[in-house]
């Protein structure tokens, strides 16, 4: 049975529906990310789980019990806010101890658990520091320790890393994943950073305008995007207009001068999506001209003008000679690397 279950949850502010028909079941110990553009309702969903907002419709259940009937102070969830929301007048240790104090944990045990929690997030020795005297990364760790020390049934993280610089964010991502693996807390992370969602989560919930676009493992959502939105949002992608010709045998998928055996089930105008790193330069295929060539250390980025419109190609920097700007090339890819959808506009 699902550990945490959201059943057709919806939230309306006045006439505006911000979250709609949101159904998700989270297994115990799972790490889930809500991924979507700004304003798509991620925070709203998280706040409904936390209890700071009441859902307009639908049910939220934890281990089968109705969570919406429980006051937020009694839900026992750990929450890390985007702004951290640390108590500035308390030291790091007092911040972490607050939740234990509210639970009536005796003083000696409290001190021990606070020490352990701060040590776990790599802040041993910072007990007496006040939050305003700490760096962003350190504050973030205190917030994490404060949420984890109460042994929450679910850990909710609202863009906890978005205030950190790129390098620190990467470090914290690794650390967050390690901590989550070690203690096995069911975790929901809100983010609009697709790399963060992919590197951390077991499953990603891709959202757009209050609706779920796709739920799947990072590989599934990346390799097999369920919609154009998902493929555009998760990394760069090339969309080429093509057609499936069922009049010939075997049936053929044609995009410009690129052709391959057509996948079963579809016919007529289609959209062919291929990730830039899956495209190679070959002797046959889509003819294109290289507009710009950008060196990015471990890879090359090519912007091309192809028969089917602009295309992006990424090639590993493996020491091989690469085509130069202005060169005419043929773009080719393996049929299993593309995803084909019926084209709506045609």
């Amino acid at each position: 049975m699902a550990y945490l279950e959201l059943d057709r949850v919806a939230k309306q502010f006045g006439a505006q529906t911000v979250v709609d028909d949101f159904s998700l079941s989270v297994g115990k110990g799972e790490f889930i990310s809500f991924l979507g553009p700004s304003g798509c309702g991620k925070t709203t969903t998280l706040q409904m789980i936390a209890g700071f907002l009441d859902p307009t419709r639908g049910a939220i259940r934890l281990e089968g019990k109705d969570l919406t009937a429980i006051h937020p102070a009694k839900r026992g969830l750990g929450i890390v806010f985007q702004s951290y929301a640390l108590f500035p007048h308390m030291t790091a240790a007092e911040n972490v101890a607050f939740g234990l104090e509210m639970r009536g944990v005796p003083r000696s045990e409290r001190a021990e658990r606070v020490r352990a929690a701060l040590a776990m997030v790599g802040l041993a020795g910072y007990e007496e520091r006040h939050p305003r005297r700490m760096s962003g990364g350190q504050q973030q760790r205190v917030a994490l320790a404060r949420a984890l020390v109460i042994k929450p049934s679910v850990l909710l993280l609202d863009e906890p890393l978005s205030n950190l610089d790129a390098k620190l964010r990467e470090e914290m991502q690794i650390e967050l994943r390690q901590i989550q693996r070690t203690i096995g807390t069911t975790t929901i992370l809100v983010t609009h950073d697709q790399n963060e969602a992919m590197s951390l989560s077991d499953r990603i919930v891709v959202m757009s305008q209050g609706k779920i676009e796709q739920i799947g493992t990072p590989q599934e959502t990346y390799e097999k995007p369920a919609s154009a939105f998902v493929s555009q949002f998760l990394g760069k992608t090339n969309d080429f207009a093509g057609t499936i010709d069922r009049t010939v045998s075997p049936t053929l998928l044609v995009a410009g001068s690129w052709r391959a055996p057509a996948p079963a089930g579809l016919g007529g105008p289609v959209t062919v999506s291929i990730r830039p790193e899956r495209i190679g330069f070959g002797d046959t295929g889509l003819s294109a001209k290289i507009i710009t060539r950008i060196f990015q250390g471990n890879h090359w980025l090519f912007q091309c003008d192809s028969e089917c419109g602009p295309a992006i190609v990424i090639r590993q920097n493996d020491g091989q000679a690469q085509p130069a700007e202005g060169d005419a090339v043929r773009l080719t890819w393996r049929p299993e690397d593309m995803s084909v959808r019926a084209r709506a506009d045609a």
Binding site: F52, I79, F98, M102, R146, A147, I150
Partner: peptide, 8 residues
């Protein structure tokens, strides 16, 4: 909200 989530 932070204080409330901690049980206050």
């Amino acid at each position: 909200n932070a204080a409330m989530s901690l049980g206050a």
